[in-house]
Design a protein around this nucleic acid. Structure first.
Lengths: 142, 142
DNA sequence: GTCCGTGCAAAGGATTTGCATAATC
DNA sequence: GATTATGCAAATCCTTTGCACGGAC
């Protein structure tokens, strides 16, 4: 069972305080999605002295190392989450920006088949369903 | 059969040279996707004196008027295409950035059903299948 | 003539980069 | 001790905005 230290070394990354802190943040919020800015502020709140540049660099390295997944939803910012190895897609609430994850084998299979139809060598795919979540919907009608 | 003039007036837009030029560019390249910058340079090449700011403003107005669709693919730039009224999804070549459009009723239906399962009031959705297109694939193996 | 649209340059926000210092190995 | 990381600030990229002038209606 490899630990963080091995994870880092495996990808040529030294074990440093900023890297441990950032990874810990993701691990203590398993399903949460963070933007670079959110991480920066969260760490600042915790009293850590980490620069924005480091946050961006570390996130990019983690993404390249396969530790994190990077998404782009409505806005023009990147969103990161722990890469658990299981692919999943997202429902995005356009009102409160809440994210709901889901996996659907039928959709997965169908996408494979479409790629094949177009002689496309699929490497990845991304499905975002935008809409209003139930809590927001109720709020709107009350 | 409403013409461009009507299209513009309907949305409170005056008929101006930049707007006509930009729309014409899309109409002469029906299936093509453009970034703001590409439009700016294309018009410059044609000897037009249109500022970048105007290009961005007009694209946003056209998008709000429903004349254009706006996408965000791999990069951090927006991509625009003529809105023909028919929804479609995209295959994106990660190598040459070629875009292939497709529509699949099964996928559409399945997405509706997933949204319903999660009590989600779907307004829109976006499916990007990333991969390597056939021409690029062959190029790689030769 | 009024109001909207334009060009220019400056501002804005997210992300990256250069560089000297500081930490890991 | 050599090399990689960090923090800071400046730089970069795409996009938006303020403002005075010009064009549409």
């Amino acid at each position: 069972m490899p630990n963080r230290k091995d994870d880092f070394h495996k990808h040529g990354l030294k074990v440093t305080s900023p890297r441990l802190k950032i990874l810990a943040l993701f691990e203590t919020h398993p399903k949460k999605h963070f933007t670079a800015d959110e991480i920066f502020h969260e760490l600042q709140t915790q009293g850590e002295e980490i620069g924005v540049a480091t946050v961006y660099r570390v996130l990019t390295q983690f993404h390249e190392a396969g530790l994190l997944t990077r998404h782009q939803f409505e806005t023009d910012r990147y969103t990161f989450e722990l890469d658990t190895g299981e692919h999943h897609d997202h429902l995005v609430c356009v009102q409160c920006h809440r994210l709901i994850e889901f996996v659907d084998p039928l959709l997965e299979a169908r996408q494979q088949s479409i790629a094949k139809q177009h002689q496309f060598h699929m490497t990845d795919h991304r499905l975002h369903i935008f809409g209003v979540c139930q809590p927001c919907f109720q709020k709107n009608n009350s």
